[in-house]
Simulated assay, not measured.
Amino acid sequence: MNPLDRLLLATGLLIPLWLLAGVWLTAQAYPGYDHLQQAMSQLGAEGSPTQLWSPRVSNFPLAVLFALFAWGLARRWQGSTLARVSAVLVLLHGLGSLGTGWFPCDQGCAPAQPSLSQQLHNLSGLLMFLSLTLASALWAWLGKRLAGSRTLALFSLACVVLAIATVVLMGQAAQSGHLFGLYQRLNYGISVIWVAGLAWASLRPPANALRMAAI
């Protein structure tokens, strides 16, 4: 593997750390912000004290990192159509991250009559969830067959199950108004940890490279 490919794949390891640091640092400038109750999107919402720089610290840099990782993923597993599809899904996730930053949600992020910006923000968030969940599902299939890693396959499957379970909890929390921030962080945390796991597995040589051409 050449240095460029290693560098591109290594961006996947950086994504969870960047997300954690970006959200934490931004929240420091938001008086009274509650990580357990409030959505991460509220950091960049209309009228929030961190509206202008929250997307510049989190959403936009993360979009770039996801795009770079998608490029590395496509190069690393170029012999597999399904792996390239997963790379496209990761790229779509990056576009979703860009969209959630470019289109801020309304104040509070849960208006009775959402603005166009709020609607586009919500669609971008849905794209983010669906893209990485589908990519994880693909690697639950590809992990053993392509990378020769049963661990990666089971890890990917577990992340799919947990992502779906936590998004259900997010919906319930949105209705009850209690602990939405916690469940959102668990949901997205699972997704970016999966990205880091895939990056780590992709940086290693496949256990059975002969299977690559057959997939």
Score class of each variant (00 low, 15 high):
1 M>R: 14
6 R>S: 13
6 R>Y: 06
7 L>K: 11
9 L>E: 05
10 A>Q: 10
13 L>M: 09
13 L>A: 05
14 L>N: 01
17 L>Y: 12
18 W>Q: 13
19 L>T: 12
22 G>W: 02
23 V>R: 03
29 A>I: 05
33 Y>E: 13
49 P>W: 08
55 P>H: 12
61 P>E: 07
61 P>R: 05
69 F>C: 01
70 A>M: 01
72 G>W: 00
73 L>I: 06
77 W>N: 01
80 S>E: 11
83 A>P: 03
83 A>N: 02
85 V>H: 08
89 L>G: 00
94 G>N: 02
94 G>K: 02
95 L>K: 04
99 G>A: 12
102 W>E: 14
106 D>W: 09
107 Q>S: 15
107 Q>T: 15
113 Q>A: 14
114 P>V: 08
122 N>E: 14
122 N>H: 09
122 N>A: 14
126 L>W: 13
128 M>H: 04
133 T>Y: 04
138 L>S: 05
138 L>G: 05
146 L>Q: 03
147 A>S: 08
149 S>P: 02
158 A>Q: 13
159 C>W: 01
163 A>C: 03
164 I>G: 03
166 T>H: 01
174 A>I: 06
178 H>I: 14
179 L>Q: 13
179 L>F: 07
184 Q>N: 11
189 G>F: 05
194 W>I: 04
195 V>D: 01
196 A>W: 05
196 A>S: 12
197 G>R: 03
197 G>T: 06
200 W>R: 09
206 P>N: 11
207 A>S: 15
210 L>A: 15
210 L>G: 15
212 M>Y: 15
